[in-house]
Design a protein around this nucleic acid. Structure first.
Lengths: 241, 241
DNA sequence: GTTATTTCTTGATTTAGATCAAGGGTTTAT
DNA sequence: ATAAACCCTTGATCTAAATCAAGAAATAAC
């Protein structure tokens, strides 16, 4: 799909707000932006991302999908939930690795070819640094997930996810319960039971809005990285201290 | 510890063999190498790697350790087993994230400060590319681990690990059974039971050496990335095809 | 506004792997 | 050579979460 000139203006200013392009001037980015491509995907569509056919860097402009792996039995793990402004870079996968992109909503992705990205990295050291930062964040987020998935009980996983969304966003569970459950490596039934356990502790969902009786009920489920963005962090009220 | 001149020569040629420094000339690397620092760690020592005090890039010159996270209950996950030539880069961690380095053997680590690395990246685009490659490999390896840990049964995990070491190395289980079990997120007892299941399928360990009755018994446990390095891959003998 | 479809909850049952416990091997230390 | 420490195995039991099953609630479709 070739975007119209009018759209392009809007797209460019949108791209400028992303961390991937931070500390780079409009002029520096122009040559890269001119290679921007756009593609739409439908809800429920499943696309295999591999480095052969998808040697690109994708940016989720609008919509929602999950990166998953499915085994022979049909069991699925959700590696990442890709929301607006999030990136996926199959160009960084090795030739034999692939993941499935499973579209939860109708989605519009921007993408740049590997060559465009490589050129921008060569031309602008800051862009290389931004790519490094993006990959480093991915590493850390995967390590945190591994920790949460392997060490925590069902209730702790849900509690953790709620602080996560409470702090990073707007006191709202951003996705459906079953998608969240899948991301946490558990069945929807277990998620539901964990929520009713948490209700006893004063935490409950009022139509996706997270409500707390007291205010600090979720602190016990927090992690230091998430907590660092929290107003309570390192005060006497915070259980981390 | 300040290395002697004689040692340095040996260290430099060792470093040159690492993928991190590939496609870079001796001269290009010299300024970076001159900032090399060396530190020894003892077996059973545990060090917290965080970006505050360890804003460095470590290279395992000799020895063995594991990167772990431990929770309040004392349960541990092994994020990575760091063998000779492997890298760890706490410099890429965010300020509130940390992992424990748990030394399995006496270990000698090389390291470069974040500033040295940053300077080398700025001076040599190829080095930035190598850093990107290292981080991309880390991402992929974490995604593969997530898949193995979440989707596979105990027997499948052990089978997978054996193909992994069979192909990448020398038909030998590289680490102790309990370390391997921990890496696979299971108890030593479960590892032991899984091995005896595999023995029924013609796979067994003869003092760490992997022995196969037929030769293809482990193919069922392989993954495409590992399989890509295998002689059977994509031949009629390979179950992936 | 009613029906249809999907999502969520609650209960009963099953199960894979953890835990507990004890004995056997193997390596390291003295 | 003997002891000590550690690692591994095997068996018995337990448990958290999965699975199975069936309504209830919420969303979407007509």
């Amino acid at each position: 799909m070739i975007p119209t000139k009018k759209h392009l203006e809007r797209y460019y200013s949108y791209l400028h707000t992303l961390p991937l392009f931070s500390n780079l001037s409009q002029e520096a980015l122009q040559p890269l932006f001119e290679t921007l491509q756009v593609r739409q995907f439908h809800k429920n569509e499943i696309v295999t991302f591999n480095s052969k056919e998808h040697s690109r860097l994708y940016i989720n402009f609008d919509g929602l999908f999950k990166l998953t792996k499915i085994d022979e039995r049909g069991d699925e793990i959700v590696l990442k939930i890709v929301d607006k402004k999030d990136l996926v870079s199959p160009m960084h996968f090795s030739p034999h690795y692939d993941v499935a992109a499973d579209f939860v909503k109708n989605t519009t992705l921007f993408y740049f070819s590997q060559e465009s990205i490589a050129k921008a990295m060569a031309d602008h050291h800051q862009f290389s640094l931004n790519i490094v930062q993006y990959l480093a964040d991915s590493v850390q987020s995967l390590m945190l997930s591994a920790e949460v998935l392997q060490l925590k009980t069902a209730k702790e996983k849900v509690g953790w996810y709620l602080v996560h969304s409470k702090i990073n966003a707007t006191f709202e569970l951003p996705y459906s319960k079953s998608l969240t459950a899948a991301y946490l490596g558990m069945q929807p039934e277990s998620f539901s039971r964990a929520l009713s356990e948490l209700k006893k502790e004063g935490v409950f969902l009022d139509n996706k809005k997270i409500k707390l009786d007291n205010g600090d009920e979720l602190c016990a489920y927090c992690d230091p990285v998430t907590g660092a963005d929290c107003a309570f962090f390192k005060t006497p009220d915070c259980l981390h201290s």
